[in-house]
Design a binder for these strands. Structure first.
Lengths: 218, 218
DNA sequence: TAGTAAACCTACCGACGAGTAGATTACGAG
DNA sequence: CTCGTAATCTACTCGTCGGTAGGTTTACTA
């Protein structure tokens, strides 16, 4: 009577865990941590609630695992495109391209990391902050390298971390803006930001443009 | 027996409303919208729960009123320091100074606006997004003015809104970074960001610095 | 000083959602 | 074939929290 392929049943644990995590990312990113219910996660995942608890633990556990997985994916994606042997501006450029590319392909991941993780005042809120801080430090390293390589940077070095924070925030904000303006390519976004932070408005209005193969000012 | 000044009692409605709103901003900023309870708001405000409902309405109403009040305060603070007759770079400079000054003096306001408002998926989440969008448009206007004033900006004009979004995000991110590094003055933050967006890294490492009295490039 | 309106409270309800108890069913090994 | 174990479900408990009913107290006013 019932078709035998009605529903994928009795799947091995690891597969179910992945499905549940996927569902959780979706639900958390759509509703936010508090508004999301475990029932909904279970429903989206196509399993019953006790499975979620058996495999992934409490709601906090589940959320933490989502965050960690997605953060790792994002960081890996960015790291893959960046080679520390490249010149600082090329490192920035590559990182930005990878970042926007990832966000474009993984909206839910990005939303759950950016919007939800910060607003949860728990133990892993700190964890997330630290991840973001690490990212900032990586960028700061590039900023410092930019300065030292050119033998400058008294003030720039001191303020490197702040500048890096600003840059990271600019990228994040641009990613959010992107959600409302999808008719722009990821590469274009990256080039906008690269021009902004490398040349600044002062140079931009003079018509200068930064390009990958023609770095720095003319 | 009991001192007659034991507790401020029987206060007029408008005073109580302000107290409750103040408490709500505090509680929402500390715990987030969902985790915050009306009981706690009432307790912090020093009144009983029905008063909160009688005066401010439902939890959503209360939150919306918090958001609107604090957003207005922030926007007014920034607008006060900016004169549209000034040159674009001076407008940016003044706006940034006002912004960081406000954030420094009103951490809770800033937190409730930045962290909580975005993560609540409701009707006013949209409202908040629109407020932020308006801010971005204001900045975009300055960016465009920068371009047109100097007779350029084909690409810059087209990307003005994106650049403005990036700039706003950079300021927000720097404000968040500030929470963990309070040993920096608001003015210094503003000057960092101003140097970044006006000159860019490319110029910064060459030792150029933007100063209020010596605007634009030499 | 009585009367009235506004300020204010205690005590409760109902819904919702995290988390669990305990049974049940399918798959693989021997 | 059967038997153990892993996968899975239904159906509950219980705490929390948004929201309210209904009464009580204070201050002002005529």
């Amino acid at each position: 009577m019932q078709e035998k392929t009605k529903r994928a049943r009795r799947l091995p644990r690891e597969v179910r865990e992945r499905q549940i995590l996927d569902a959780a990312v979706e639900v958390f990113s759509a509703n936010g941590y508090h508004a999301a219910s475990m029932d909904e996660v279970a429903e989206v995942a196509g399993v019953s609630k006790p499975m979620v608890y058996t495999y992934l633990g409490s709601k906090e556990d589940l959320f933490a695992k989502c965050i960690r997985r997605e953060a790792k994916r994002l960081l890996d994606a960015v790291a893959e495109g960046v080679d520390t042997d490249m010149s600082p501006d090329m490192q920035l450029w590559s990182g930005l391209r990878s970042f926007f590319s990832f966000v474009g392909d993984n909206r839910s991941s990005w939303l759950v990391l950016h919007r939800q993780a910060l607003s949860v005042g728990g133990s892993f809120a700190e964890e997330i902050s630290q991840m973001r801080a690490r990212s900032i430090e990586l960028v700061a390293a590039v900023v410092v390298a930019t300065g030292t390589r050119q033998g400058i940077g008294e003030q720039a070095e001191k303020s490197a971390e702040g500048l890096a924070a600003a840059l990271v925030g600019a990228a994040e904000s641009l990613a959010v803006w992107w959600l409302d303006h999808p008719d722009v390519s990821d590469g274009l976004l990256a080039s906008w930001l690269m021009n902004l932070v490398w040349l600044g408005f002062g140079d931009l209005v003079k018509g200068e443009v930064w390009t990958p193969n023609l770095p720095a000012a003319t």
